[in-house]
Write a protein that binds this DNA or RNA. Sequence first.
DNA 1: GCCGTTTTCGGCCCGACTGTTTTCAGTCG
Length: 573
Amino acid sequence: MSVTNSEIAVMFEELADLLEIEGANPFRVRAYRNAARAIADNPKRMTDLLAEGQDLARLPGIGKAIAAKIEAIASTGTLRQLADVKRRIPEAMGRLMHVRGLGPKRVKTLCAALQVRSVEDLQRALRSGRIRELEGFGEKTEKLIAQGLQQVAADERRTSWSVARQIAEPLVDYLRAVEGVRHVTVAGSYRRHRDTVGDLDILVASGKGSQVVQRFVAYEDVVRVVAQGRTRSSVILRSGLQVDLRAVPESSYGAALLYFTGSKAHNIAVRKIAVRRRLKINEYGVFRGDKRVAGKTETEVYAAIGLPFIEPELRENRGEIEAAEANALPDPIQLRHIKGDLHCHTTASDGMQTLGDLAKAAQARGYEYVAVTDHSKRLTVAHGLNVRRLRRQIAAIDRLNEKLDGMVVLKGAEVDILEDGTLDLPNDVLAALDLTVCAIHHRFELSRHKQTERVLRAMDLPCFNVLAHPTGRLLGERAPYEIDLERIMQAARERGCFLEVNAQPQRLDLSDTLCMLAKEIGVKVAVSTDAHRATDLDFMELGIHQARRGWLERTDVINTRSLGSLRRLLGRH
DNA sequence: GCCGTTTTCGGCCCGACTGTTTTCAGTCG
């Protein structure tokens, strides 16, 4: 079994943690962290790139030394340098770095003075009350570490974007009502529309920062104030979510928005360009010497370093800076481009809405079409349709369409891809449909090779249209199954098939980087909600966020097409 | 350890907040 990118990335992260505790050159440590991120972000497997004879040192953030280390990991499954440092520094100390309030220096001190080498040791040391007696530590620091330890589990749990929105919106309304507040924006990964957020970063434009901070910490959902200064504060809400607030004067709002939106990697890349131009960018503006030359809007800040505005979803330092410099940024898809939903369930299988409800809900959103795609018979828990029931549904949809004005209900099915690569319903009935949405719902544990062959075989069938939720991941619950999506995407392009961006908040599968891969390979996608009730149609917005993060444009997404054009694409002939 | 519009050496983003300090180190984002 070959090593995955995330496994390689974890090894470099661990190496960085341990070396940092050891006091290694901080730039070397950063290089390992940058490499870990570059590897984790890359949708293509390092092992596959190596097998193709590609030079990994050509990837940004990876040079000759790290490329050689990746090769070693690929061939041996281990990294010698990591094993070496683990002999010098107990492995568990790396995890201590993830306790809020502990960095490399404090971890090192705790180890030297109190023999703290693990989370359990740390708990013991806290109980003994000896931490406060260490030089450079004190009672407050001890308390900070104790709280950090309690939060460790919560910190590892990220919040889905849609849940974060439910928490963020009332807080934003509350802050907008504070006297003197001009603008409030939830920045950070929330504004970049990542599928999950670790915390909320709220930026406020106000001439009276400390007043805003005082009102902020008094918000009814705040259970703990982590930090409180004149312009900046951090709190923990009842939900466990941390919220960081920053207040700046209106004249700095653009620069602060850029800074607080991130990503960190994007900011660093932007500031490096500024340095090359003998400028300095901070959250207050763009400076040439002491003279401020920009800062009120983000557009102004980007312009100061010769770049066009970059959409927040693109700010991950995944090539957007280079694209901006070359004036080749994508024009990301928007919600208003969507003309219909291609994956929806009704009460015929496991949905909560009738056929009529679904049609009405789709029409209310101004759609030209909506596809009914109930489950096939293997999925008995979802009351999947057999041939007889599917034929009955087809007839019912025909009758409904005769009555509908201005919208068409498409006949479809979400068909199980069986283990042998056949589909769960026979060809003749599938041929009577407008489209099929095919998916894996069992045997997730097959080897990468077998899983890939399974889908490729299914895709050879003429009635296969869209591969639904292509990795099967459930955020925070279930990892993606092993599958070679690069091969699948190539095969899909050759056969006229498509991949889905499933807009369910816990799926959002394809992921952002896999959307980028789809675009690179040239296979188009469907952004679909997998709706089980009428309100689920609103998940479309989340799918659009993900598609935008994956650089997808209107023409990359098939359900931006008018009905006639869509039908031609689904024909496969 | 990476990288190159001061290019193979010598840099590497930048500032706020806190605690324990009398001027700053550590951590965080």
